[in-house]
Write a protein that binds this DNA or RNA. Structure first.
Lengths: 242, 242
DNA sequence: CGGGAACTTGATCTCGGTCAATATTGGTGG
DNA sequence: CCACCAATATTGACCGAGATCAAGTTCCCG
């Protein structure tokens, strides 16, 4: 068997690759090919006519939505193994998808995939599992956006990114955020200045250490997670969809 | 054919009832029965061992999560036709489910349902569709929580509830909120005082009118939706899951 | 090195939170 | 039916976390 578009997918539990074997795989492969984007390029735009969705092979993707006046909310950060660009609204993408780093991803035709999934119950179950995981995550994030103070949010973000990247083998220690202060702010519903101050506060309290502005060392994991309030069970999450 | 537990489900597009017919329906029915809750009773608790999930026949349910210190975030408001209590975390409910009004719902055994869905592709597709719709909604809500100011949030809430209740034939005009100021605040990430002031502001601007504190008349829909910033396409949404 | 982008830090302002005092309202029993 | 009471909502005064505006500083990257 040759190298597969998805053979790099990690994640110990279920993901959209496992159910693919033998002949079925061939069909899937026919549906989409590998594409590449550079940092800050767009994978897809909200309200643009629906095209394929993508399964990330490497790199990080931000899923977001922006108001007319420029206010932007990053709704999810996706890592290798995750799917993005799956959600649609009346034949259009429901969100923006932006490469936070250089990205490689498999493109899949939405209709073709759905039709294929309809014939393969385990694949359909994998999709449902992925969607459930994403929905659960969204609920957590709403708690963060609605209830946590700025420093709590940033602490939560760091714990979350730490868990996410570790699971997906994105980067080793020290943790590399891959996001500017502005991007973190857009994810947490804060301003870049507030994010900067909150990070400073965590540094002063010896919860974390900084190497440059992108590399973070978690000095006191317990304290970090206590500040973050919301549990981050390091449980492996299924392939996630957006 | 006799009266069905789900025959009241409205929603023009897909829902979890349509794919149920004949013999298959019988199996589904064997999986769960109708239950009733009074206002403010709990359908299920986060972290409690997983039991059945529920499909609402009548009434409104709040899906929420509360921190140790009491801060609470309502993550979704569900109406007849929607499913709640579906998401799990390691064998436990992922969220709280509370009756905002008297509620009637069908209980379904999770495992039994999943097994059944695995054999019926159209049902599986319906589940995926419902989960997708819920996830899209969550993204919108994150934009609201992260970026909108208090009055914008309240306007958005009113527009959302108006659309939701109208689709599901929950209440006619004037719109009955079914939620106290505190509950609205917990949904919008605000305090009850701020919600009250924002409603007052919308009243002064003649965007809405009040009859008592629960009944709202939308006087200027355009203005309301302009303030709300986020589009509320009145598109029928699929059965939603939590 | 030099220049520009990203980050940090500081000063001030504002929105929404907090605390507190009424005002409604709705439900209950007389 | 009305009076009363508890629960809920409104309104006001004040405060503080975070936004905004404005310098500086560091860090890349050519």
């Amino acid at each position: 068997m040759t190298a597969l578009p998805c053979d790099r997918c990690v994640g110990r539990s279920l993901n959209l690759c496992r159910p693919l074997d033998g002949a079925r795989l061939q069909v899937m492969l026919a549906l989409g090919g590998i594409h590449r984007w550079k940092k800050h390029e767009s994978l897809f735009r909200a309200d643009a006519p629906m095209g394929p969705f993508f399964k990330i092979r490497s790199g990080i993707v931000a899923v977001s939505r922006t108001l007319d006046d420029g206010r932007r909310q990053i709704v999810a950060v996706r890592a290798p193994g995750d799917c993005v660009g799956y959600l649609e609204n009346d034949g259009k993408y429901a969100f923006d998808g932006d490469a936070l780093t250089d990205v490689e991803a498999c493109a899949f035709d939405r209709r073709g995939f759905d039709a294929f999934a309809a014939k393969h119950p385990d694949l359909a179950a994998a999709v449902a599992e992925a969607l459930s995981a994403a929905l659960k995550q969204s609920g957590q994030d709403m708690l963060v956006l609605g209830q946590l103070r700025s420093t709590e949010r940033v602490a939560h973000f760091l714990a979350e990114i730490d868990t996410l990247y570790r699971q997906r083998a994105v980067s080793s220690r020290p943790l590399s955020l891959k996001m500017s202060r502005t991007e973190i702010a857009d994810y947490l519903g804060l301003t870049l200045e507030t994010v900067s101050r909150a990070i400073g506060k965590l540094k002063v309290r010896d919860v974390i250490g900084l190497m440059g502005s992108d590399e973070v060392v978690v000095l006191d994991n317990n304290k970090l997670r206590r500040i973050a309030k919301v549990e981050h069970d390091g449980r492996p999450s299924a392939t996630t969809i957006n």
